[in-house]
């Protein structure tokens, strides 16, 4: 009896896990398959669950009807720059917040946590006005600035968790050997923290790569569009041309999926550890 129950449990487990796998993978499969169909096949019934003719027309098309290569470059420039800058700033603030007792330490942490809870878009209209005053609308700088600022709190919280796991005897020893505070941080601590820093960088990059509303608000000019702005432009009031749309969606997802495939363990570990400490 017990044996039978056990094998029933195992088959239920396998059943649930397989069903779930299908549900999770299917949307990505479906948009990819759509992007590989010729356009008459996309809109014809019965639906083809595997394209009768595989074609890359939609991908070629998207570079012809739009400046998709420019959008990709812009997205890369903005995401990489903002992630690097945020990392430099957050490493310094996280280190100090993790290691030193000083007046206001707790308050700064509270303020940073608070930014994670407030609805960010309350500030969007004022940000738009600010950017227009600075003359930065339609410039990539506007996005780099707001993305950097927006990610500082979370990256600081995350990195602080990593710093707290490293014994302070490490830099104390370096400082006795004559290192300054800064060079102890840069030469001794950072190398030990590399996995945490990489996880934080990847997190920031993915967030920046995916950001939508601020880029729609700030950018309207062809030469400055990022991928999300361009894809948003494919949605017209009443219709979507699903051929180029599916190709654009697949292209925009490729970098983050590749990053995820290679660094899954590190990202998941980094996020959950950070959360536990946080």
């Amino acid at each position: 009896m017990k044996h039978r129950l056990q094998s029933l449990g195992i088959s239920l487990k396998v059943l649930f896990l397989s069903l779930f796998l299908i549900v999770m993978v299917f949307p990505l499969y479906w948009i990819t398959i759509t992007s590989l169909k010729p356009s008459d096949e996309i809109f014809s019934i019965p639906l083809q669950y595997w394209p009768a003719h595989i074609t890359f027309d939609n991908f070629i098309n998207i570079f012809n009807i739009s400046n998709f290569h420019i959008y990709i470059m812009n997205s890369l420039i903005v995401s990489l720059t903002a992630s690097l800058v945020v990392l430099m700033i957050a490493v310094l603030s996280a280190y100090v917040l993790a290691r030193y007792h000083f007046k206001g330490n707790k308050q700064i942490m509270y303020a940073f946590f608070l930014t994670q809870m407030i609805p960010a878009f309350i500030g969007f209209a004022p940000l738009y006005i600010m950017m227009s005053h600075f003359g930065l609308l339609n410039k990539l700088y506007s996005l780099m600035i707001v993305y950097t600022a927006g990610l500082i709190p979370f990256c600081t919280i995350m990195l602080r968790g990593f710093f707290q796991r490293i014994p302070s005897s490490l830099e104390e020893a370096a400082m006795i050997d004559g290192c300054s505070r800064l060079s102890a941080l840069l030469r001794v601590i950072l190398p030990v923290m590399l996995p945490g820093i990489a996880a934080t960088f990847i997190f920031a990059f993915v967030q920046n790569w995916n950001e939508l509303f601020l880029s729609i608000m700030f950018i309207d000019q062809e030469s400055s569009k990022t991928i999300p702005v361009a894809i948003n432009g494919f949605i017209t009031k009443f219709n979507i041309d699903w051929g180029p749309m599916s190709a654009g969606a697949v292209l925009s997802v490729i970098p983050t999926i590749i990053i995820f495939a290679f660094c899954q363990k590190m990202i998941v570990g980094g996020l959950t550890q950070g959360a536990e400490k946080g």
Partner: peptide
Amino acid sequence: QSKFIFFCLLPAILMVGMFTFYPFFRGI
């Protein structure tokens, strides 16, 4: 030491203050 703390925190606080908290209160 307090100089070090100050300069490490300055960029973060300036950026978050200017581009998160200021627009937030302005929005309110």
